[in-house]
Lab assay of single mutants.
Amino acid sequence: KELVLALYDYQEKSPREVTMKKGDILTLLNSTNKDWWKVEVADRQGFVPAAYVKKL
């Protein structure tokens, strides 16, 4: 499975999103959308801005 690194803190703004902290390592589930990537963090799945994460 592919992992991404959170480059910035992100606070979810809708139930479809997830909160992450800078430095978090997240499991990447889907990166087909260039703006929003689906990730899993702490047993929750949701979207984060693609610009806020980097593939490892």
Rank of each mutant, 00 (worst) to 15 (best):
W37N: 01
D24N: 07
K34H: 12
K1V: 14
K34D: 11
D24E: 11
A51H: 13
N33G: 11
T27D: 06
T19L: 03
Y8N: 08
G46A: 03
L5E: 11
K55S: 08
W37I: 05
L7Q: 04
A51R: 15
I25F: 06
K21V: 10
L7Y: 04
V18F: 11
Q11T: 14
Q45F: 08
E17S: 06
P15D: 12
W36D: 00
N30S: 13
Y52K: 07
T27R: 12
A6M: 02
S31N: 09
V53S: 01
R44C: 05
I25D: 00
L5F: 09
T27Q: 11
S31E: 15
E2N: 13
E40M: 11
F47E: 04
L5R: 09
F47M: 09
M20G: 01
T19P: 07
R16K: 12
S14P: 04
V53T: 05
K22A: 13
Q11G: 08
L26A: 08
V53L: 15
E2Y: 12
L28E: 00
K13D: 06
K13S: 10
W36L: 04
D9W: 04
E17I: 04
A50E: 03
W36A: 02
G46T: 02
K54H: 11
K21G: 05
S31G: 13
Y10N: 00
Y8P: 01
A51C: 14
L29T: 05
D9F: 04
E17H: 07
K34Q: 12
L26M: 13
R16V: 11
E2D: 12
I25Q: 05
N30P: 03
S14E: 09
K22T: 07
W37D: 01
E17K: 04
A6D: 00
L3D: 04
I25M: 06
Y52C: 11
K13Y: 05
T27M: 12
K13R: 14
Y10H: 04
P15E: 12
A42D: 14
L3S: 08
A42P: 13
E2R: 12
L7N: 03
N33W: 08
T32V: 10
Y8V: 11
L5A: 06
A51Q: 12
K13H: 09
N30V: 09
K22S: 08
K21Q: 10
L26W: 04
Q11L: 13
K38R: 11
E2W: 13
A42N: 14
D43P: 12
D35A: 12
K21M: 10
K38M: 15
L29E: 02
E17N: 05
N30D: 15
T19W: 05
L56R: 03
D43T: 10
L26F: 06
K38G: 05
Y52P: 01
R44E: 05
R44I: 07
V53F: 06
W36S: 02
A50H: 04
R44S: 05
E40R: 10
K13I: 07
E40G: 10
D35C: 14
L56G: 03
V53A: 04
D43K: 09
N30I: 08
K54V: 15
I25L: 09
Y8D: 07
L28P: 01
Q45T: 14
K21Y: 12
V39L: 05
K21T: 09
Y8K: 15
V41P: 02
F47W: 15
K13P: 05
K1S: 09
G46H: 02
M20W: 01
K54F: 11
P15A: 13
